[in-house]
Design a protein around this nucleic acid. Structure first.
Length: 592
RNA sequence: GGAGCCGUGGUGUAGUCAGGUUAACACGCCGGCCUGUCAAGCCGGAGAUCGCGGGUUCAAAUCCCGUCGGUUCCGCCA
């Protein structure tokens, strides 16, 4: 039988990518895949690849005719076992671009363990291949060094997180994947119950309620690298299933959680990337973040802080500003970093961008000598001109952008900051910029449903100072919450939870949840809270986003082994797919 | 639900705006030559009904309509 050749192969003694000058003179056995074959008629060079990298195997007919003959049959991605002697390369054929480039292995035997079809795309660095094709043959895509690096990095991240948290007395505890659908938040993925026809489990959006129950149970500190599911539309940084670093602690205040997290990330970046992070990470309240950056996930690296110019235009002759101020609005703006004496076309680009972001208009101001160049300059008094220059610290040729209006301009200003950062701001020396944003509003007003909704989730504790006026001014209340932002990406967030049943009841009532509804939806948690819940709080981080940023990728699909496309399908397995009528019948389900 | 972009040999692209002979290039693949390459080289070869369907036209990769898939963003989502 032809198959019999497959049961004879030598196990490796070394990994390909690890061979160095120290190994010269050793006999080694390598197992791996053929990256390339260079056939010179006489000598044949094989680049053999495994998880550690590449090494060159030389097949010389004068050294081993059988190895050479075998190498002639070999093609890309064949799986080989090669025995041979490690030898220093001749000085003129050292390859400095290869970690193993000073040595090579002189083949004595070359055994083909498995052949391979010609792969549908070339297994090499870079990803210029159609992503659907990459996903369809993900096991080949994952052979590429950049994908292997990303997943190795991911594994190191989870390991270091585990090591750190366990060293801080956290316990890793699993929570159910088949659980109860909860209202509020995202759409649930749902699993039909066979044993109870017509009833459904939901896959967890997060382990939120379970980790709180673990605190009631007295485990004190919990963590989990937890898979979460949300049936919402996908983005470059959003998959229907994703992974959270989830943790919860008892008897803590926000400060305890944040300082632990500071240390966790400092440890992580030091051990995995060799990067020292300055801790504690800077903190902003939500209000400050909105005021200075126009967004709750600021990237302070670009500078360009938003400032208020209202006072200076109180009496202005410029009608746009005057009327906005009289209507209770403000004049705010920022100086564009890295932009000097721009062409008119670039300024027009800024105005277009502002309109695209929803602004009525945008006033740009360029310092020219003692005066200003601006469409609005002729309406400014000498004093206003002077004060604009002074307040903004405008140097010759620098550009100030001004908008007039209310809070609706925050997204415009934030969008303009990103736009300017991408085009004009000099690259920041800071690779990783962490910022805490704290004291989020406790509630938002949902215009469609005409009711208050929790900004975070209904178990978030109000800030201690807001307890009195909760019912009178729900929108004025802030919470004991904190988000961690990395390079303008929301990495994660958490809060101190409510542990007082009375307060929880008040929150539900503001949310328009009756006792009956609350009991029906969260009854098990409320009941648990009648048995002595400790004060507790926690936080959860998007592992995929974290690894994406650490790996310098643009999409979390690049750091997930088997991700889904934007329509939620997996080109490799063909999921999702129809199921057979028999399965439907068993579940008592019928398509509508 | 909405908007933009992409779809051409196995892969990546050009050609599309301005319709017109045999759809071009690189890589890969196959064969031959070649004993120091590592983006090996040289010679030769195979390989594409231009995502799919319909329409306009003497003529469609190219124009129009629809549709499918991918992707980015808005809505949605913490």
């Amino acid at each position: 039988m032809e198959d019999k050749k497959d049961i004879r192969w030598e196990k490796r003694t070394r990994y390909c990518g690890t061979l160095r000058m120290d190994d010269v003179g050793k006999e080694v056995v390598l197992n791996g895949w053929v990256q390339t074959r260079r056939d010179h008629g006489g000598v044949i060079f094989l680049d053999l690849r495994d998880i550690t990298g590449l090494v060159q195997v030389v097949c010389n007919p004068e050294v081993s005719p059988t190895a050479h003959a075998a190498a002639r049959q070999v093609r890309s991605e064949y799986v080989l076992s090669c025995r041979g002697m490690v030898r220093a390369r001749p000085a003129d054929s050292v390859n400095p671009r290869l970690a193993t480039g000073e040595v090579e292995v002189v083949a004595e035997t070359v055994t083909v363990i498995n052949s391979s079809l010609t792969p549908p795309f070339e297994i090499e660095p870079g990803s210029g291949v159609d992503e659907t094709l990459r996903l369809r043959y993900r096991y080949l895509d994952l052979r590429r060094p950049d994908m292997q690096e990303a997943l190795v990095l991911r594994s190191r991240v989870t390991q270091e997180v585990r090591d750190f948290l366990i060293s801080r007395k956290f316990l890793e505890i699993e929570t159910p994947m088949l659980t109860k659908s909860t209202p509020e938040g995202a759409r649930d993925f749902v699993v039909p119950s066979r044993l109870q026809p017509g009833k459904f489990y939901a896959l967890p959006q997060s382990p939120q309620l379970f980790k709180q129950l673990l605190m009631v149970a007295g485990f004190d500190r919990y963590f989990q690298i937890a898979r979460c599911f949300r049936d919402e539309d996908l983005r470059a940084d959003r998959q229907p299933e994703f992974t959270q670093i989830d943790l919860e602690m008892s008897f803590v205040e926000p400060e305890d959680v944040m300082s632990l997290v500071d240390e966790m990330f400092a440890h992580l970046f030091r051990s995995v990337l060799g990067v020292e992070l300055a801790t504690p990470f800077p903190r902003l309240t939500w209000k400050e973040a909105m005021e200075r950056y126009g967004t709750d996930r600021p990237d302070p690296r670009w500078g360009m802080e938003i400032r208020d110019f209202s006072a200076l235009f109180r009496e202005t002759g410029f009608k746009v500003f005057r009327s906005a101020l009289e209507a209770g609005g403000r004049v705010r703006g920022f100086k564009v970093a890295g932009m000097r004496s721009p062409a008119r076309r670039e300024l027009d680009g800024l105005v277009d961008e502002a309109r695209r972001l929803g602004a009525g208009g945008l006033v740009w101001v360029v310092r020219e000598g003692e005066g200003l160049k601006s469409p609005a300059a002729k309406f400014f008094s000498a004093r206003e001109t002077e004060q604009v220059v002074a307040t903004a610290g405008l140097e010759e040729g620098e550009v100030l952008l001004l908008t007039a209006g209310g809070g609706e301009l925050n997204p415009v200003l934030a969008g303009l900051r990103s736009y300017c950062a991408a085009r004009y701001a000099p690259p920041s020396g800071e690779r990783f910029s962490f910022t805490w944003v704290t004291e989020f509003p406790l509630f938002d007003w949902d215009e469609e449903e005409k009711r208050y909704k929790s900004n975070h989730h209904p178990f978030t504790a109000p800030s201690p100072g807001c307890l009195e006026n909760l019912e009178e001014d729900p929108l004025g209340a802030t919470s004991d919450s904190y988000d961690l932002v990395l390079n303008g990406v929301e990495l994660g967030g958490g809060s101190i939870r409510i542990h007082d049943p009375g307060l929880q009841k008040r929150i539900f009532s503001i949310l328009g949840l009756s006792d009956e509804e609350a009991a029906e939806k969260f009854g098990f948690l409320l009941e648990a809270f009648r048995y002595g819940p400790p004060p507790h709080g926690g936080i959860a981080f998007g592992l995929d986003r974290l690894v994406m940023i650490m790996a310098g990728r643009d999409s979390i699909r690049e750091v997930i082994a088997f991700p889904k496309t934007q329509s939620g399908s997996d080109p490799l397995t063909g999921a999702p797919d129809i199921i057979y009528p028999q399965q439907l019948r068993e579940l008592r389900l019928r398509p509508i």
